[in-house]
Design a binder for these strands. Sequence first.
DNA 1: CCTACCGATCGGTAGG
DNA 2: CCTACCGATCGGTAGG
Lengths: 213, 213
Amino acid sequence: MSPKVKSEPGNVSPRERILGVAVEMARQIGLEGLSIGVLAKEVGMSKAGLFAHFGSKEELQLATLEAAQSVFMQRVIIPAEKTERGLPRLHQVITDWIAMAESACDKGGCFFYSVSAEFDGRPGAIRDRLVLASKQWLDWIQRQIALAKERGHLIAETDPEQLTFEIHAYEQQANWAALLVGQKDAYARAREAVRSRFYALATEQGKAILDAR
Amino acid sequence: MSPKVKSEPGNVSPRERILGVAVEMARQIGLEGLSIGVLAKEVGMSKAGLFAHFGSKEELQLATLEAAQSVFMQRVIIPAEKTERGLPRLHQVITDWIAMAESACDKGGCFFYSVSAEFDGRPGAIRDRLVLASKQWLDWIQRQIALAKERGHLIAETDPEQLTFEIHAYEQQANWAALLVGQKDAYARAREAVRSRFYALATEQGKAILDAR
DNA sequence: CCTACCGATCGGTAGG
DNA sequence: CCTACCGATCGGTAGG
């Protein structure tokens, strides 16, 4: 790939175009329901032409999962890593995470929410990679909570694993409530729950950080 | 239905036997992945023989959903309605709910968790019935919270909708963490989160109720 | 990247 | 409740 072409926006490779459509389809019907024929029609090429890019359905699914992970990195993790460690970074990453899920609400919702329950009972490479990504994300949050504690933003009684559990719970519930029962304020409820949990465990310094945002 | 046959365990109609197997299969592969041919083999009858009981795949899916709802009623709602209204009943229903999900953990997890994300993007009769059941369940919890407030078990500042959101969140997260990332103490974490939320909003009377359980 | 095809399986039907 | 079958679609391949 020639560098001058590579980085120009709007000038994406066929593979990237396919994966972009695949991610959008998977939000709505899952990664297993994703059919090569239907995907090919959507992209505007032949089934065999599309298939040649991946070699198997499982490789297509893995590539789609990777594409979604990459978007998540760009939109949630990378921006937060420019913010100060501890509670500021934690607060920002959770806020961006909720915002990303909310913005995907009309398109079928958060990709990872859509495929989690689909693969928890299907052993294989896709499940394995999904589990790994999920664990890494939980660890990221938990490490940042521990750091916020060390820096005196959260009180010493804070249990990082329990707080991670609760924070992640609100995100899950926001997706469920918004996508299934159509609760309009689901993401606002999640933001309120997160803030209230942070506030209850914040030191004076931590409260000042939260108040400033 | 004659009473002497009806209530004998082990004496179930073919339809009930089929639906029992269907619920177990749907926990693992979902209601859409449920195939009539595979289900028939599992039950030990011919595809057409099984099909005749339902007339269409959608009717089979709806009947499976109803069967799961009926189990939920028997194991969670009905028992709780024998307990005193307000916080005691609320506490018991949530405890039984978590216990039921935990007991299903090795079998593919909570039926409703497994099919929620599958149908939030698939319009139709199944989604409609799932949405209705979910709303009724949320309303049940919210009403009981409101009642616990009226009876002086929870403080006046309690927001029933927000508390319902958070309680339901812990259940969702317990399922996700246990089934996908294999977190062993996920259901214990959910119980702790629920208890801690109740305790923070309990009056002196409410705290006494919680301490007694 | 394409057309044309493979066997397997899908939901569903005919006829008994 | 069965066997036998329908057209459509599935993932995947051959050959160019």
